[in-house]
Design a protein around this nucleic acid. Sequence first.
DNA 1: GCTATCCATGAGTAGAATTCATAATACATG
DNA 2: CATGTATTATGAATTCTACTCATGGATAGC
Lengths: 301, 301
Amino acid sequence: MLERVHLVVLREVAEHGSLTAAAEGLGLTQSALSHSMKKLEGQLGVTLWRREGRSLRLTQAGEELLQVAREVLPRLEVAEERLSQFASGRRGTLRIGIECHPCYRWLLRVVAPFLARFPNVEVDVKQKVQFEGAPALSGYEVDLLVTPDPVEHPDLRFHGVFDYEQVLAVGRGHRLAGRACIEASELKEEVLITYPVPQDRLDIFTHFLAPANQRPAAQKTVENTDILMQLVASGRGVAALPRWLVEEYGPLLGLVAVRLGGGIFKQICLGVREADERVDYIASFIELARGAPRPCEESVL
Amino acid sequence: MLERVHLVVLREVAEHGSLTAAAEGLGLTQSALSHSMKKLEGQLGVTLWRREGRSLRLTQAGEELLQVAREVLPRLEVAEERLSQFASGRRGTLRIGIECHPCYRWLLRVVAPFLARFPNVEVDVKQKVQFEGAPALSGYEVDLLVTPDPVEHPDLRFHGVFDYEQVLAVGRGHRLAGRACIEASELKEEVLITYPVPQDRLDIFTHFLAPANQRPAAQKTVENTDILMQLVASGRGVAALPRWLVEEYGPLLGLVAVRLGGGIFKQICLGVREADERVDYIASFIELARGAPRPCEESVL
DNA sequence: GCTATCCATGAGTAGAATTCATAATACATG
DNA sequence: CATGTATTATGAATTCTACTCATGGATAGC
């Protein structure tokens, strides 16, 4: 009934002072505007303006409606602009899911320059303890998945962005502290501190202990990486962490990295939905992640 | 481009959860909505929602647009409602022009019940000193004219609403105070206090002095009725005023009314544009004015 | 697996918006 | 005062758009 056109015409007429000029500005005929407004007047039962000499003068009702136009139209125009930014990937919310706990620290380095480059894009990090990355990604719960374990999925694509070694972190005074590397059997008297996730998602089990059919003396779980490192530093146990993390905080806390067997080499991958791969800010995020400074090359903020 | 329908559909879908249900609610086909939204998506280059099982789930862009819908649609709906009130005369601004100064006091009595009856109608009183009523009325400067001097005009209609007598007001101690009536010649030694308007708009000149070819000793002008009455009461001069006004304030201030010759009998008229005569609140105003209590029948508030 | 219930889509149609041509009106100007 | 140039208004023709209908494809529940 009361359509956007009507408001546009009203505003244009108010600005240019005449139907003819307004029609010009809108790329339409004067006749079109006249017909269209006449119809609206008929439907509403109101006169919006009245001829006064050769120009038009708004009635009370017209003024009222013009007021509406001045409020509503900018809102619609901004909305269109924003939506077109969504379309071109200059705006949106990038919801990032994280599967590996220490990845969070790595992520922070990528997010900072990303935010600077896309001021209209919000970033939201979802770091649930129990978190099935791939389903969350394909189910549109998150738009980007940071994980060391890419999976095969028809709609998803994974990009390796950062290589690292998973090592054993031990306290400075620990009996294994001086070693270059250790065997799986050497952990059987150790307390192993891990994140609270199933063993099949912990590399130290899947890639190191399980193949040798070994187990630690005990396993404790902790959610927070900082606390975990503190516990290790205080000699309460040992933990598997990325080498760059140990080397970065090691000097500060008193941590030492020890290679696990021949070394567990991993890669942080970024997973996205195939449909999103060409969205500007998502592609740029991956680009940025690839070129991001290696965690150990630069100190943390 | 982004039309009202789109917002309506978006809101309806958000509410009912499915296109089919929304179509039902809007009295359209599911197909219609699907086509229409698809087109919008194409124009904007955005997907608004995505099929999830058998229902729809809004994307970020969709959520954003839904937000717009929730802001804009109510505004439009209210606007339509208000305009239809304009149409039926239940809303508007009644701009009243006053030509005769003391009429203002009479007007107040009509305005009060009018405001109570039309809570959505604003009243604006324009009481310029130099004020040509008829042109202001036909030129849409005012919607209602309160005047004792109706004019002939093809587009205007005047309704007599209140009869009164124009009398001479004198102070209690004045030499004419006891008289029932006076002749024009008896004013030649008096100071006549009037409103600052041309003599041809003052009844005491046109209907009393001019026919007898008389003039007062002097003429002073004052804009304010209260001051005018004070001046007369203090014996500084005499003035022509409606009888009801003199009788209402006379006891209080010390004023007495004296008939001018055989009496000057006037009528307050309400002028409206013919086109407006059937507007609800205007017709009601005239109705109310006709039935209003005579000023002298009731004391002022 | 079958069925009910969604959404998507192509083709045809009814209706609405737009244009064109022209009338009616107001203002300026020689 | 007539003439020319601005307006807006209006009727008829045309173009275009939005809608419906019919149907296909997908999903969830039984």
